[in-house]
Design a protein around this nucleic acid. Structure first.
Length: 476
RNA sequence: CGGGGCGUGGCGCAGUCUGGUAGCGCACCUGCUUUGGGAGCAGGGGGUCGGAGGUUCAAAUCCUCUCGCCCCGACCA
């Protein structure tokens, strides 16, 4: 269980897999490209789900569940969509010992089957908006996989909504991206850039795709959530119409949006250090781990009794664990819980007992803070809040320090050849200009940020005048 | 699919070139002593050496075939 973690500076991708193994977050499954999410990882995912699901409900969405299997013909109904997904689909051809009349695709995403159902449910403008979400697994047959970031099967949430006007659909698309931004920043303590995807990078079948992009510690970008305005593409493909207030038939306007277990990978690569993962307090399955320190049987009984009492005073407000395991030294336990990313350690030994205090140790900074047992709940809350804030600030300064504004094409190439980061550069929204940058640097346009100031100038590649800058970076 | 690497107790490896019947570290079990940053000693359990076939008195080791995994490239949340 306890292994040494490769330092980030030595080999970032090995560091990443080491952190996952050491924290017992996931393991490789017997099926190539698939993973097992272990209890430590799944507890995290459950907290992600809880927080996100609450926000979905607040914005009026309801959960439902649609089938894993999709008739192959459904997928083929939307031209761009099938083109985007067909190569990475798993297809079931046999069932019950017989070849199926029509193959069933294992969902890579559920637009098609959901819109086949929306057709039955939507008749009038009174049925709109229809705001739905499902938590499920999807399968995409990827060539190269990495734990949490890209596996054949992954868990996610997919929202699907239907609206009566283009404006409402656009509002919904932006609203849900904003929900993702808030989740990333307020809960995960992960700063992101919100923006619109280029034509080249948008979702197959969408009119517009928005995303939130985060910078990992290796300075590569990770798309952490997407929201699509699907226009009337799926309504047309599945013939979903409604009667408006004036009695006219119209195609419905659609959106879809999702985040996945990839966010766990994002969390690891945003906050982790050479000791392992660091969990932001707002999402940590365990906030505080209490570790007793003693010599001999008598002390053990005294310290444990006191520590249990402290655990009880903390447990109404925080998720607390008392590590009573015997046969392990305190030092061993420190490392163990650090690898698991628990934000706050509470130590108590004979010296603390005498002074009626405990020692709080921050996972993120290692700082040791002796505090009296009086008013401990408030102190713990303060320290956890401080950790949450400081994780965000640290990540934000990494992103700012590694973002540059460049106007010269060669400077961009040179920057991306080095340690890299985010380039704010001018690029027109054409396939060919973006392709040229990608061919030469492996970087792509991550997004066209919402909050970009007007800053007209020539496109880095073709020289055509554009009115502002985009974010260019290597991505996952 | 192209390039590279690796399959030997749970994990990490040595042994392979030069055949002689399997070893080390960690982990695990028992006991005693320990416990403020990965404890020590003693004892113990666990492997048909990825699989199949062949050569040989004898194969982890040599030959043939096969299967699997990891890493690096082209696509993706």
């Amino acid at each position: 269980m306890l292994e040494k973690i490769t330092p980030r500076t030595e080999d970032f991708s090995r560091w990443y897999t080491d952190v996952i193994a050491a924290g017992q977050l996931a393991d490789y499954a017997p099926v190539k490209g698939c993973m097992v999410i272990r209890p430590n990882g799944f507890a995290l995912w459950e907290n992600f789900q809880r927080a996100l699901d609450g926000m979905f409900k607040e914005t009026g969405h309801e959960n439902a569940y649609f089938p894993l299997f999709i008739p192959e013909s459904f997928l083929k109904k939307e031209a761009e969509h099938v083109e985007g997904f067909a190569p990475e689909c798993a297809v079931v051809t046999h069932g019950g010992g017989k070849e199926l009349e029509e193959p069933l695709v294992v969902r890579p995403t559920s637009e098609t089957i959901i819109w086949a159902m929306f057709r039955k449910w939507i008749e009038s403008y009174r049925d709109l908006p229809l705001l739905m979400n499902q938590w499920c697994n999807v399968v995409r047959w990827e060539m190269r996989t990495r734990l949490f970031l890209r596996t054949l099967e992954f868990l996610w949430q997919e929202g699907h909504t239907a609206h009566g006007t283009a404006e409402e659909a656009e509002e919904e698309t932006r609203r849900m991206l904003e929900v993702y931004r808030r989740f990333a920043e307020d809960w995960m303590a992960m700063p992101v850039i919100s923006g619109i995807k280029t034509e080249r990078e948008k979702f197959a079948g969408a009119v517009r795709t928005y995303s939130i992009e985060a910078m990992m510690q290796d300075r590569k970008a990770l798309q952490s959530g997407t929201s699509h305005n699907l226009g009337q593409n799926f309504a047309r493909a599945f013939d979903v119409t409604f009667q408006n207030e004036r009695g006219e038939r119209e195609f419905v306007w659609a959106t879809s949006w999702g985040v996945s277990t990839r966010l766990i990978g994002a969390l690891i690569m945003t906050h982790g250090d050479d000791k392992g993962i660091i969990l932001p307090p707002k999402l940590a399955p365990t906030h505080c781990v209490l570790i007793p320190i003693y010599k001999g049987e008598d002390q053990r009984a005294l310290v444990l009794e006191r520590l249990e009492a402290i655990g009880n005073t903390l447990s109404p407000d925080f998720k607390v664990k008392v590590d009573k395991r015997e046969g392990y030294t305190p030092g061993w336990k420190f490392y163990d819980w650090e690898q698991k990313g628990v934000p706050l350690r509470v130590e108590m030994g004979p010296r603390d007992l005498a002074k009626n205090q405990v020692v709080l140790v921050r996972r993120d900074t290692g700082e040791k803070i002796p505090v009296g047992t009086e008013g401990l709940v408030d102190r713990v809350r303060d320290v956890l809040d401080a950790i949450q804030r400081s994780l965000f600030e640290k990540a934000r300064s990494l992103m700012l320090q590694n973002s540059v504004t460049l106007d010269d094409y060669l400077d961009v190439v040179r920057f991306l050849e080095g340690p890299g980061g985010f380039v704010y550069g001018r690029l027109c929204n054409s396939f060919s200009c973006e392709e040229k940058i990608q061919e030469e640097t492996k970087a792509t346009v991550r997004c066209i940020p919402f909050d970009r100031p007007p800053d007209p100038g020539p496109c880095l590649v073709c020289g055509k005048t554009v009115d502002g800058r985009v974010v260019i970076a290597k991505g996952y």
